[in-house]
């Protein structure tokens, strides 16, 4: 395990049990993880291993045993320091694109001029100029996810939590969105925690990958990814060092998936 001095996020012996008809089900068991500031960490694992649950616990939406420490303080529920992006986009359908993006700003009673400035900038960043007054139901999946990301960025959280954000998108859109996310991370240097079942995505984006075991989830292996991300996607994805890492990670996840008795790992 890596030794990080003064980690941004510290997850200490987190366990989570659910009640079910057959008694309590342990989703996570004594999970430990430390994330340094500015790191991009992916959590990969078979379906149902608890990786999303872990993310929701870090986000403060679920209670759990153990501690989640952020900036050396235990968390007390959701907060604007941890932005979250869901696979389902979770845009407020009754608000337009610009009102969705401005939602967090409205909660903080930001002045109208500042609000407009931030929204205009973000709309430009995500490339949706001209769509400000549209409603979510008029947007495609990729556009919705962009708005969701912009909405989270508007509050400028230090940490970004992403729960399989591109899972609902088609392959081409997914790749475009991955590049966008990478660009945003390189620019803003935020701490990012990404949950995904797509191994290639994890290797492409993150500088550290955590493999989660089958239920009850624990982080059983970690890989450091040290690739030069200034190279274009075509070069990077086809290069041998990318594939060496990718194969190692894939194998590790596959072992977990087989251990869980599933064949659900996406070998893409």
């Amino acid at each position: 395990m890596l030794n990080i001095v003064r980690p941004k996020i510290e997850i200490r012996r987190v366990s989570k049990a659910y009640a079910s008809d057959h008694g309590p089900v342990l989703a996570l068991r004594d999970t430990d993880l430390a994330v340094g500031e500015g790191e991009f960490v992916s959590i990969v694992g078979p379906s149902g291993c608890g990786k999303s649950t872990l993310l929701y616990i870090v986000g403060g939406f679920l209670d759990a045993d153990g501690d989640v420490i952020i900036d050396e303080k235990a968390i007390m529920g959701p907060g604007t320091d941890r932005g979250i992006v869901f696979q389902e986009y979770a845009l407020f359908p009754w608000l337009t694109v610009e009102d969705n993006i401005g939602y967090g700003l409205d909660r903080q009673h930001v002045s109208a001029t500042d609000r407009k400035k931030i929204i205009d900038r973000l709309i430009g960043v995500i490339g949706l100029t001209g769509f400000e007054k549209r409603y979510p139901r008029e947007l495609s999946g990729g556009m919705k996810q962009r708005v969701a990301i912009a909405r989270t960025l508007a509050c400028d959280p230090a940490i970004l939590l992403l729960d399989e954000p591109f899972g609902a998108l088609d392959a081409q859109t997914r790749e475009i969105m991955q590049d966008e996310l990478l660009r945003i991370w390189l620019e803003t240097q935020k701490t990012v925690l990404l949950v995904t079942h797509d191994v290639t995505e994890a290797v492409y984006l993150s500088n550290r990958i955590c493999i989660m075991s089958a239920r009850p989830g624990q982080i059983i292996e970690q890989f450091t990814v040290d690739l030069d991300r200034t190279r274009p996607r075509e070069e990077l994805v086809l290069s041998p060092d990318f594939n060496t890492i990718r194969n190692k990670v894939w194998l590790s996840v596959r072992r977990q998936a087989l251990a869980a008795g599933q064949q659900n790992v996406d070998p893409s």
Binding site: G60, P78, T80, I84, F86, A90, R151, C155
Partner: peptide
């Protein structure tokens, strides 16, 4: 109401009263 909407709102600073 979808859970993810409530959670998103909370992560964006919505208090319980709001």
């Amino acid at each position: 109401t979808p859970k993810v909407l409530v959670w998103s709102a909370q992560a964006l600073g919505t208090t319980d009263r709001e």
